[in-house]
């Protein structure tokens, strides 16, 4: 793993924040994972109720006019999820842990934790072989991602050992995510949220 556990490269963190701004990523600085979970709850609360996709596709549930906001976090530990679920349900959100394929009509907020950050491009990298993990960061209108400051390296080359370890596994799907989904395919006008999230937040954790 790059970066010594617990040590923070302050200049890398600053660079990450600067580049994140250019990539239309909202940065929040929080103490730890518990605070990042609170942040995800807060973002969900503040977000507008996402419009479900009015589609004819079979696996998409018919849209419900009285539906509640949805929050998913398939990849965090059971203990962390229990905390999140309790807080989310208290706010009246529908909490989803797995089977995200059933929710292709849209989820309001997806919460995931990244393995490492690459400062020069504001990239968050994570091993996400689990399809639910991948979908949480794709079909949610807003993606909230937690990243420990100590896991931020300067350049992609500093992430080589991390990547080699990941690619060496029997099955592996590793993703680099560097902002909300974007396109400029119509008249070269930059537009966010074409297939993936419209908004991306990163909660940078001190520990």
């Amino acid at each position: 793993m790059p970066g010594n556990p617990g040590t923070i490269d302050a200049s890398a963190v600053e660079l990450f924040k600067a580049k994140a701004k250019l990539a239309t990523i909202v940065i929040a600085e929080v103490k730890d994972l518990a605070a990042a979970i609170d942040y995800a709850i807060e973002v969900t609360e503040k977000s507008e109720l996402g419009k479900l996709m009015p589609t004819k596709a079979g696996t998409i549930p018919p849209s419900d006019p009285n539906r509640k906001k949805t929050l998913t976090a398939p990849s965090i530990s059971d203990a962390d999820y229990a905390v999140l679920a309790q807080k989310g349900e208290a706010k009246g959100f529908t909490m989803i842990r797995s089977g995200l394929r059933q929710y292709l009509a849209g989820i309001d907020v997806g919460f995931t934790v990244a393995d490492i950050g690459i400062a020069e491009t504001a990239t968050s990298a994570c091993e996400n072989d689990s399809e639910d993990y991948r979908l949480a960061s794709m079909i949610s209108e807003t993606h909230v991602l937690a990243l420990a400051k100590s896991k931020i390296v300067k350049t992609s080359y500093d992430a080589v050992s991390y990547l080699k370890e990941a690619f060496g596994r029997e099955h592996n799907y590793t993703s680099f995510i560097s902002g909300p989904s974007r396109t400029a395919d119509i008249e070269r006008v930059l537009t966010l949220g074409v297939h993936g999230p419209l908004y991306m937040h990163i909660a940078l954790m001190e520990e």
Binding site: T123, L163, F176, G196
Partner: peptide
């Protein structure tokens, strides 16, 4: 290509990944 530091997504796929269906 588009004067971006990196494309928003880069997917690295090694072998057959999880597919629930």
């Amino acid at each position: 290509a588009t004067a971006q530091a990196i494309t928003t997504y880069v997917s690295w796929i090694s072998g057959s990944s999880n597919c629930e269906i």
